[in-house]
Amino acid sequence: MDSSKSGFDESVKTNSVSIPSYLGRLRLRTHHDDDTASCASIFSDPFSRKHLLFLQPPNGWKNAEQQWTVEDFTDRVNVQKATRANGKSCVLNIILLASISGEETDRCIGTTGFVTIDNDIGYLGIISDHKTTRLGYATEALYTSIVFAFEKLGVKKIIMQTDELNEEMRGWCENTAGFKLDSKKPKELNGYSFIQYEYMFTLDEWNDSIKTRLEEKMNKIYKK
């Protein structure tokens, strides 16, 4: 990795992005129209968004049930396109390849990447179909997002934020990736109150240990 590169790659701002994952089971890509229905379903699923209740459509809920519609997710994609064009975000859909899943076609199983990029700090997140958990896809998707961020998005420091009650994500950050807990503090977003845990690591820390740690984890458990 060339750590001398700096700044958000201009080609990423307006061009489509498609990245093969570390183990080749997934592809991360900017949004395709045929991903929309899957994303809306995942964002509405109570298991997938159990600890992301603050997530709301940009233009507010269109139904009393607070379910994401195709129109809601289209609004979100349009906001993300605008912020990516300004070098302020880069969100990628997680595509499970049919050659791996045995399904008829490739399928969108979630989103990851950086909803916010503030100068050289990227805020990394993930939401995925709960039916695809515990198969290593999250580790593979997050690893791929991190590499892309350091190489193409001008990011030098990455922060992951999660609810104190999200033991699975906290466990991934602390035990799988070895991130350090930077802070924990009360937070309120869209009327939802929680204790936010914030994990932070730098490019140097990534190169020194975290990158190898995740690669060893994937090669040991999820090797092709």
Rank of each mutant, 00 (worst) to 15 (best):
G7E: 11
F8L: 02
D9S: 14
E10S: 12
E10H: 09
V12A: 11
N15E: 15
N15G: 14
S16I: 13
P20V: 00
S21G: 12
Y22W: 13
Y22L: 11
L23I: 05
R25Y: 00
R29W: 01
H31L: 10
H31P: 00
D35H: 04
A37L: 09
S38K: 02
A40G: 04
S41R: 02
F43I: 04
F43Y: 02
D45A: 02
P46L: 03
P46V: 06
P46S: 05
F47A: 00
R49W: 04
P57K: 02
P58Q: 03
N59L: 14
W61P: 02
N63S: 03
E65V: 01
E65D: 06
Q67R: 03
W68I: 03
W68R: 00
W68C: 01
V70L: 09
E71Y: 04
R76I: 02
K81P: 04
K81I: 06
T83N: 13
N86C: 14
G87H: 08
K88C: 13
C90R: 09
V91S: 00
V91F: 00
L92T: 04
L92E: 02
N93I: 05
N93K: 08
L96T: 00
S101I: 06
R107H: 07
C108G: 12
I109N: 07
G110W: 00
G113N: 12
V115F: 08
G122A: 06
G122I: 01
Y123W: 05
L124H: 08
D129R: 06
H130E: 00
H130N: 07
T133I: 07
R134E: 06
L135E: 01
L135Y: 05
Y137F: 15
A138Y: 03
E140L: 07
E140G: 08
S145A: 15
I146S: 00
I146H: 01
F148T: 10
F148V: 04
F150S: 02
E151K: 10
K152R: 06
L153F: 09
G154T: 08
V155H: 03
I158K: 06
I158D: 02
M160Y: 05
E164D: 15
L165E: 14
L165N: 13
E167Q: 15
M169E: 10
G171D: 05
C173A: 09
N175R: 08
A177Y: 06
G178T: 10
D182A: 15
E188I: 15
L189V: 15
N190W: 13
G191N: 14
G191M: 14
G191H: 14
Y192G: 12
Y197I: 10
Y199E: 10
L203S: 01
D204C: 11
E205V: 10
S209N: 10
T212D: 11
R213P: 02
E216V: 08
N219Y: 04
Y222R: 00
Y222T: 03
Y222P: 05
K223V: 07
K224M: 04
K224S: 11
